[in-house]
Write a protein that binds this DNA or RNA. Structure first.
Length: 500
RNA sequence: GCACCGGUGGCGAAGUGGCUAACGCGCUGGUCUGCAAAACCAGUAUUCGCGGGUUCAAUUCCCGCCCGGUGCUCCA
């Protein structure tokens, strides 16, 4: 009954447990808010969401910290290009990021920590590293009252460097592909902790000089502030393993001499159409791009979580369509089951089917979050129950049991309960504000323009036509609605419709 | 170049040293329907990149090759 998760540090699948026996303390690297998030970003955040949702489902308490990097080179560059200070530039993208999390039903971490709110903690950490002989300052302005000068981490002071990514430092020659002595580093591989700034650049005046933090510093400082010097789990995209996480370890452990995190989880990158996603390849998609193309947030979520986190996911529009259909099947099923008229009682067959599905579902997720395997028993159950509904061999107690299993599925997958209207509407509103409404799918716009009342009116007209056996007119109406993304189902107990 | 991951039906994707190789999507036929849709049933991989080896037995282990991807540099 415990999640076992691959641990990059140990190289094996280890149980995930809170070291204090009460609350799991985890840190997951968040975004740099300089642009809108793309599906690659969200695959990682989504898989971390699957992790935390499953831990919750298994009854674990979590304290999850995520950083928001709101100062770095790209932000400074983009803000300068836009002609605004970074403090005016980043809030826009920070809000966009949080809105996108909501769209994808990614639960908010307990603590969101912004880099610029934690400069004192970072400065303090540099001071501790300096005392430990792991950090040094360079630059011509060195000396009393010096404001310039950058701080670097002295790799030579941390022999364990490379233990996470299993890199052999011996094999990496100094200066091989590193900027050569840009700031007079002792060793070319030493990394920046604190960057000296030129006059006019964004900077903070601190005890260690005037400048701005290096990227790796914030995560060490904030993780330790909120989670302690040693915590349970640290997660992020595979690219962060080296150098980012390796550097976090070096910064923290060189002063604490304790493992920063016991367990390290890394989410694999995705491909798009079989290639690495990049703007130059033309296969680069933000969440908003996809919503405007008419894909539902739930379908995007399912497509991005259905391949286990340690496997490369090949993202395609076929895959998105598949996810759309799969969700439709699940929602149609739940709807049907809830509305079915059943007699009271339970049947052994249904109870057993539900029990089996639940057992296999939990087993698959406990085994390194195998989301692909976890889906299978749920669909098996859906088929079995649909069959029973057809045959009339299911009772009210069975329904309760089956719905309870589906709830546990949705507690992690979060795709059955329909929250799709709002993200789509928000994306359209945003597109309008940006003046890019022409990028939206025509069907989407048509559907938005059709109110429930209008649909009901057309369906009433169609019902009348059908009663008069005027099938030509009734089919016309059905086609008309279909063109606007409305699907009609003539069931025994009446007509149902839904927005596609 | 060095290192790592993967190649399973039309597509996506699990899985295991030996029962009929999950599940989803798609497609074909049937039931139901005015026709559809939904749902159910049946069919859809004599076979798991190629070659060799280990084994009573390999898709699953080992070796080689081919192909795809990734890391070694900012990147989720």
């Amino acid at each position: 009954m415990t999640l076992r998760l691959y641990n990059t540090l140990s190289g094996q699948v280890d149980p995930v447990t809170p070291s204090d026996g009460k609350e799991l303390r985890m840190y997951a690297c968040g975004p740099t808010v300089y642009d809108y998030g793309h599906i690659g970003n969200f695959r990682t955040f989504l898989q971390v969401d699957v992790l935390r949702r499953f831990l919750h489902l298994e009854g674990m308490k979590i304290r999850h910290v995520m950083n928001i990097t709101d100062v770095d080179d790209k932000i400074i560059r983009n803000a300068a290009a836009a002609g605004v200070p970074i403090g005016e530039y980043t809030p826009l993208y920070e809000k966009a990021f949080l809105d996108d999390l909501d769209s994808l039903r990614i639960e908010r971490p307990e603590i969101l920590a912004k880099a610029t709110d934690h400069i004192p903690e970072m400065v303090q950490l540099v001071e501790r590293m300096s005392e430990a002989g792991a950090a040094y300052k360079t630059g011509s302005a060195e000396g009393e009252g010096a404001s310039g000068g950058s701080w670097y981490f002295r790799l030579a002071a941390f022999p364990e460097y490379g233990k996470l990514s299993k890199k052999d430092l011996e094999g990496i020659t100094d200066g091989a592909r590193v900027d050569v002595d840009e700031y007079e580093k002792d060793s070319a591989r030493d990394f920046a902790l604190w960057k000296a700034t030129k006059p006019g650049e964004t900077s903070w005046e601190t005890a260690i000089g005037t400048g701005r933090p290096g990227w790796h510093l914030e995560c060490s400082a904030m993780a330790m502030k909120y989670l302690g010097e040693s915590f349970d789990l640290h997660a992020g995209g595979e690219d962060l393993m080296f150098p980012h996480h390796e550097n976090e370890i070096a910064q923290s452990e060189s002063v604490t001499h304790k493992p920063l995190a016991r367990h390290w989880m890394h989410v694999r990158f995705l491909l798009v159409d079989g290639r690495k996603m990049s703007k130059s390849e033309g296969n680069f998609y933000t969440l908003r791009d996809l919503l405007l193309k008419g894909y539902k947030a739930s379908a995007i979520r399912l497509a991005l979580i259905s391949v286990p986190y340690r496997h490369q996911l090949n993202f395609t529009f076929d895959g998105l369509n598949e996810a759309t259909q799969a969700i439709s099947r699940l929602r149609t099923f739940v709807d049907r089951l809830k509305k079915a008229e059943l007699s009271s009682g339970t049947t052994p067959a249904m109870q057993e089917a539900a029990e089996k599905a639940e057992r296999l579902y939990f087993g698959a997720l406990e085994n390194d979050l195998n989301t692909a395997e976890a889906r299978a028993p749920i669909f098996d159950l859906v088929r079995a129950v649909n069959s029973a509904l057809d045959a009339g061999t299911i009772l009210t107690g069975d329904r309760e049991r089956v719905l309870a299993v589906l709830d546990k599925f949705d507690a992690v997958f979060a795709v059955i309960a329909d929250h799709d209207a709002e993200p789509t509407r928000a994306a359209l509103t945003w597109a309008e504000e940006q003046g890019i409404l022409d990028k939206a799918a025509p069907e989407l716009l048509a559907q938005q323009g059709l109110s429930d009342e209008q649909v009901d009116a057309l369906i009433a007209e169609r019902n009348l036509a059908r009663k008069q056996r005027n099938f030509k007119r009734s089919d016309e109406i059905r086609d008309e609605l279909a063109a606007k993304g409305i699907v009609i189902e003539d069931a025994k107990d009446g007509v149902r419709w839904k927005r596609k």
